[in-house]
Design a protein around this nucleic acid. Structure first.
Lengths: 218, 218
DNA sequence: GTCTATACCCTGATAGAC
DNA sequence: GTCTATCAGGGTATAGAC
């Protein structure tokens, strides 16, 4: 199970490879953490679980990270970089119109896909957010931070005379809450993703009493 | 800070009052737990925190509860009893029509109010759900359980020929996710509750592109 | 930089007197 | 039934050899 550690021997290590080895260990810890976070969850994972899965010693961990939270931040940073690179491939209209179904669906799909493809990391982030001291307001702050772009789109809509259901910040947070918790809780079944994305899009676009709601047609 | 414990003396206790004292200790533990859960959160609260807040000894805890989770279940039971009693005062139409704004708003308002009035308990329940092993699927199951009534209402709508945005179970879970996480994360400011309830109602009723959306009127 | 070994603290849970 | 005292286990973080 545990990967073989090439440094665990008492052999002399050429100086030039030492920092490469360090980077390798750091990467091994990150990869192992991603795996065990996915299996047992972030909160239930101990530092010794991570080092064991990476085939490194306990003490080695602290050479790279001060604690579990810092390692999580590094994983989140990696994920955001990957997501940004992925997004750069897509064309984005400069002025979003979230009342256009295709554009709204794109946003829902991107959020959903990122959550699912990086489930161990987003799940860990979610657990960390919920476990924070309630008095700290971190959950609310995180929710606002992660929906700030959405909020800007809603602000934009409102400036153009659109009548929204409520304050853009609140609506953005509500949508983020729906996607965030549903994405965390729903079982991972990629075959269902399209159906879920379509359903959420329609719910957010027209609600329960939308234009489709009245008819008896199937 | 800690309440005075009348049994902490070595005085003889009349037999008839012993079970009353036990009930009192149990109640003191529940009340103290509710308070510390609200302050530090469920996950960060240790059993010794509860007993200290209740002015009882550590060992006394185990006479009443096997562990922290069982105590939480007791608190949830109390809350549900209170909520049921509260709901019994209101008239409920036998056949709900969630596409009627007043009825939808009632449901949103009830869910929101219960969450907020029992914040320490619902917050603890939420933390407990999120901290569970991801592989257990408990988060998803809890979400389904807590939205089963809503789902029935949506089933009812569909049977009457209403076209919903998606599978009733999924839509109910999505709405529950929105309310649940938002209710957990949003700062407690009762003055804002009505505004939030109205906004969420409108979002769920007509979405972002609802009938109000197009006009430039304020 | 990594390892082994360990000190330390915290927490859950129990034993036995009253 | 409650208390005091304590034990056992687990987890973080460090020390020092290599």
């Amino acid at each position: 199970m545990a990967a073989v550690n090439p440094i665990a021997r008492n052999l002399p290590v050429p100086r030039t490879t030492r920092q490469a080895q360090a980077a390798e260990t750091r990467a091994a810890l990150l990869t192992a953490a991603r795996r065990v976070f996915g299996e047992r969850g972030y909160l239930n994972t101990k530092i010794t679980d991570i080092t064991a899965a990476a085939g490194r010693s306990t003490g080695s961990f602290y050479e790279h990270f001060a604690d579990k939270g810092q390692l999580l931040r590094a994983l989140v940073g990696e994920m955001e970089a990957a997501a940004d690179a992925h997004l750069a491939q897509h064309d984005h209209p400069a002025d979003h119109d979230l009342t256009d179904r295709a554009q709204l669906r794109d946003h829902v799909a991107i959020a959903w896909t990122v959550m699912r493809e990086h489930r161990p990391v987003t799940g860990a982030q979610f657990q960390s957010m919920i476990a924070a001291d309630p008095g700290s307001g971190r959950a609310w702050q995180d929710l606002l931070d992660q929906t700030s772009t959405l909020r800007e789109h809603l602000d934009h809509l409102r400036e153009q005379g659109h009548r929204l259901p409520g304050d853009p910040q609140l609506i953005a947070a509500a949508i983020g809450a729906m996607l965030g918790l549903l994405g965390y809780a729903a079982p991972a079944q990629p075959a269902d993703d399209d159906r879920i994305i379509d359903s959420l899009t329609d719910l957010l676009l027209h609600g329960l009493a939308g234009p489709l709601a009245g008819g008896a047609a199937g």
